[in-house]
Design a protein around this nucleic acid. Structure first.
Lengths: 337, 337
DNA sequence: CCTCGGTGTTGAACCGTTTCAACGTTGAGC
DNA sequence: GCTCAACGTTGAAACGGTTCAACACCGAGG
C-alpha cells in the first residue's frame, strides 16, 4: 500500500478518466449513478485516500481553522476552544488546536506553519502584545480574549478592566482594606487590565491606591499560585492582606491549596477571588468566588468573525463582552458584626 | 498581497532561478552566502510565505503529528498532550490537537482529514473499541492510553486492571464492604478494565462480588459525577455504599460537589477514590485520593514510538505502565476504632 | 431529416513547490 | 596550459489532484 494509490489508479480500474473520479469526489450529482457506484467501489477496494495537499494546491481552499491557544492545560481555553469548534463545524470546517504554552517562540513557529499550510483562518490568544502585532501574511487572523490595538484585524474580548473592578469592589464591600492582587507576568494584557480595574475599584471606594499590593508571578498556573501563597503566609498577620484577587482561577486554586497547607483559613484569614469561573472553581476546597466570562460564546463569536473574513463587505470588528461576578464561599463575609 | 507571491516571483526579483530560491529555503549551506542574502532580502521584502501544500505534495513528507484526544477538557489528556508535544518538538515536528469529544463521528472525520493531510503520524485515544480497529490507511497510528487488541500497531497504555485493584484494595483495607463504582459508558475499555480490577480486589480480600455496585454514567465529565452523587444520596443510609471508586477524577470531583450540596460528608459518610490524579484532585474541596498515571511519560513514549514507525526495523510494540495510588483526605480512615 | 439542448465524460492545463541531472566557472595541481 | 574536482546554479520534470472548455451521445421538437 505504501506506493500510495492515486486518482489515476482509481480511474484506470474503473475505466473512466481522472476528471470523472474527481467529480465523484467533489460533485457526485453531476456523474451518472451507475458510474458513481462503480468508482466508489473501486475507491473502497483500492483503499484510495485523497491527497489533501494536491487538492488544496489546486483548489486554493482549505477546510480547517486553527486556534493557537495560550495554555491548553487551562480549562478556560479548552472551553473557549469548544465554542470555536462548534461554530467551525457548523460551517463545515475542522479545528486544529495548537498550544503555544505561553512561549513566544512556539507561538511564532505555529503561526509560521499555519500560514504555510494556508489554513482558512487562524484564531489566536497571543502570548504578549508584540506578538499580536504580527504582520499580515495573507491568512485572516482573529484575536481571542485580547483586544486588537489597531484596526487591522478582528478581535473578541471580555472587558477585563470591568472584571477587575467587579472583583475588588466586591472585596471592598465586604470590608477589606488590605488587598493583594496576584498575577503575571505583566506583559500579559489581561493582567494589566484586571489590575487597572482593581485600582479603579479602590479609588472609586475612596481607598488609597496602596491598599492594593501587586504580587507578580511568572505565569498563570496552579504552581505559581502556590508560590504566591507561601509568600503571603510568610508575612506577619498584621501586615498580611485580608483578601486576594487572583488574575485567574488556576492561581486562586494554587493559593487556596497553599493556604490550607500553611494552616490559614479561607475566607477567615484570607478571602479569595478568582477569575474565569472554570468548572473546577466551584469544586474547590473552598468554593471559589470568581469572575465569569462567556467562554464558549467568546469562541463561537471569534470563529464566526473569522469565517466572515472573506466576505466582500467584511469590516474588522472588535467585540467586547461583559464579565459577571459569581459569589461563593471563598469570600463569605468575615464578621457578622 | 492576495494574489499571493510565489517562489517564482522571488526568483525573478532576485535574479536567480526557482531552484536557487528553493535551495535557500531548504539547503541554505549549498548556496553562496551573497546569493543567499539577496534571496532572503527579497523574501522579506515581498512577504513571501512558502506554500506547504506544494512543498508536501512534491517532497512527500510532512512536519506535523496529530493527536486525536478523547476530551480536551479533561486535564489528564492535556497533560498527555504536553508529553507528546515535548517529544515531537524534540524531533522537529509540530503537533496538532484534535478533539473528538467522545463522539465517534467526529473522531472518524478527524481521522479521515488527517489521513488526507498526510500528516507524519497520528496518535489517538479512541472513543471505543470498534473505532480502534480502523483500517490501515498508510499513515502510522499509535494508540494512547488504550491497548491495541491486534499486533497491527503500537500502543502505550497503563495497567488499568491494576489501577482498579489498587483503588479498591485501599478501600477494603480501610474497612469498607459496600462500595460503589462510578463510570461509563462501558463501551470504554478503561472503564471495563478498572472495574475488573475492582472486582479482583474484592475477591482477593474474600468479599463477595456484590459488595461492588456499578453505577453506569453516560460519560466521564464532572456533570455526570454530580448526577451519580444525586443517585447515591437518594439511597437510604442503611443501603448506601460507604465508599465510591470513580473511573476518573472529573467524576470524583462532581461526586464530591454533590455530596457537599446534599449535606453528606466526605470521607465520613462516603469515602471517594478518583483516577488520573489530575492537578485539581489535590486542590479539591476534600483532597482526593486518586490513582496516578504517568501522564506526560505516556505521551512522550507514544510520540517516540510513532516517530520510530518509519524505521526499517520497526516492530509494533505495546508498552504498559504501572499506576500508583496517591492517598489523600478523601479516604481518611472512618473510625479510629 | 436536421437542429438543438441537455447530460455525462474527458483531455490537458494548471496549482507552487522540490529534485536532480547537467551545466558553466573557478582554482588547484601537475 | 591542461585536466579535473569542487562549487554554485539552473531548466525542466515531477507530485496528485481540480477545473473547464470541448466533445460525444441521445431524445425531443420542428
Amino acid at each position: 500500500m505504501r506506493p500510495s494509490v492515486g486518482i489515476r489508479d482509481v480511474a484506470r480500474h474503473a475505466g473512466v478518466s481522472n476528471a470523472t473520479v474527481s467529480n465523484v469526489l467533489n460533485r457526485p450529482d453531476v456523474v451518472a449513478p451507475a458510474t458513481r457506484q462503480r468508482v466508489l467501489a473501486v475507491i473502497e477496494q483500492l483503499g484510495f485516500v485523497r491527497n489533501e495537499s494536491a487538492r488544496q494546491l489546486r483548489a486554493g481552499r482549505s477546510r480547517v481553522l486553527a486556534y493557537v491557544v495560550l495554555d491548553a492545560a487551562n480549562p478556560f481555553f479548552t472551553d473557549v476552544a469548544r465554542g470555536v469548534e462548534d461554530a467551525a463545524r457548523e460551517a463545515g470546517f475542522a479545528l486544529f488546536l495548537c498550544n503555544s504554552a505561553s512561549d513566544g517562540g512556539r507561538e511564532r513557529e505555529y503561526l509560521e506553519l499555519l500560514h504555510e499550510q494556508r489554513v482558512e483562518g487562524i484564531l489566536i490568544t497571543p502570548v504578549d502584545a508584540e506578538s499580536a502585532l504580527l504582520a499580515e501574511r495573507g491568512t485572516p487572523v482573529v484575536l481571542v480574549d485580547r483586544e486588537a490595538s489597531d484596526g487591522a484585524r478582528c478581535s473578541v474580548a471580555v472587558d477585563d478592566v470591568l472584571g477587575g473592578e467587579l472583583a475588588v469592589t466586591h472585596l471592598v464591600e465586604n470590608g477589606h482594606t488590605r488587598i493583594a492582587m496576584i498575577g503575571g507576568p505583566l506583559s500579559i494584557q489581561q493582567v494589566r487590565d484586571r489590575r487597572e480595574g482593581a485600582l479603579r475599584a479602590l479609588t472609586g471606594a475612596g481607598l488609597p491606591a496602596d491598599a492594593l499590593t501587586f504580587l507578580e508571578t511568572r505565569g498563570l498556573q496552579v504552581a505559581e499560585g502556590r508560590g504566591a501563597g507561601e509568600r503571603l503566609a510568610g508575612l506577619p498577620a498584621s501586615r498580611r492582606p485580608t483578601a486576594a484577587f487572583c488574575a485567574n482561577d488556576l492561581l486562586a486554586l494554587g493559593l487556596l491549596q497553599s493556604m490550607t497547607q500553611q494552616g490559614l483559613r479561607v475566607p477567615d484569614d484570607l478571602a479569595v477571588v478568582g477569575y474565569d469561573d472554570i468548572e473546577f472553581a466551584a469544586a474547590a476546597a473552598v468554593p471559589l468566588t470568581s469572575v465569569r466570562q462567556p467562554r464558549e460564546e467568546l469562541g463561537r463569536t471569534a470563529a464566526r468573525l473569522l469565517l466572515s473574513e472573506n466576505d466582500a463587505d467584511h469590516e474588522h470588528r472588535h467585540v467586547k463582552f461583559q464579565p459577571e461576578l459569581v459569589v461563593r464561599a471563598s469570600t463569605a463575609v468575615r464578621r457578622t458584626t
